[in-house]
Amino acid sequence: MNNSMDFLLWVKGPAFEIALFIFVAGILIRVIEILLLGRKADLSEARSSDVRAGIRTVLNRSIPESGILKKAPFVIIVGYLWHICWFISFFLFVPHIEVINYLLGISWPGLPNQFVDTAAVIAMISLLAMLIYRFNHPVLRFISTREDYLVWLVTFLPLLSGYFAFHHTFEPYAMLLGLHILSVELFLVIFPFTKLMHVITVLMARWYNGVSLGRKEPENQEVQS
């Protein structure tokens, strides 16, 4: 590997294949294993549609519980800010949409770069703020494991390297782009085996809880779920 172009080609070629393999296979292994664990059949009669109850819980648990904003304003505000800005940085930047279109054949309009750039900065600040909060909160620090810090780092690196690549902070650009893609590959590789898996399992868990609670709800009455 003599130069940055060789590095970029390696990162976009063999390294991407390896990362994609581990990411896809890893997620499937985890999801199938969870599904095959099974649960005892719920013999109670469904009060309403399982699908309705499931979807309802998936959606309404994305909205903060009433009163929680006062109890934990930092976690709620920064948590939302982080997730929304990360979403914008990843899904609404045109070069990223090109990759998704290439991989999955689906495409959507992107945002102008200035918006994405701002979102990426906010996302990085949010992540840093959450790390400082974690360090300073005695309980949070006590329950934090090495995995938590690893996940933080691997999530932060693609944002930082992407920011540098976009702004051509260092030369040559091919090296910066290569490092950015490599950091994303690292993210993909650890994704299925760490808490990052919550992106998928959070939906499964909410669905399961929703269906379960849906069977318990009194007839013609919405329950708080």
């Binding site: 070629g13 294949e17 994609l20 896809v24 499937l28 290439y102």
Partner: peptide
């Protein structure tokens, strides 16, 4: 486009799905 992977990702994704399904099972 410059950001696109430079490999036969569909084939690799196919292998990954097969491996994932088998290993998960």
């Amino acid at each position: 486009a410059l950001s696109l992977p430079d490999s036969d990702v569909r084939k690799m994704a196919g292998y990954a799905v097969a491996t994932g399904l088998a290993a998960g099972a």
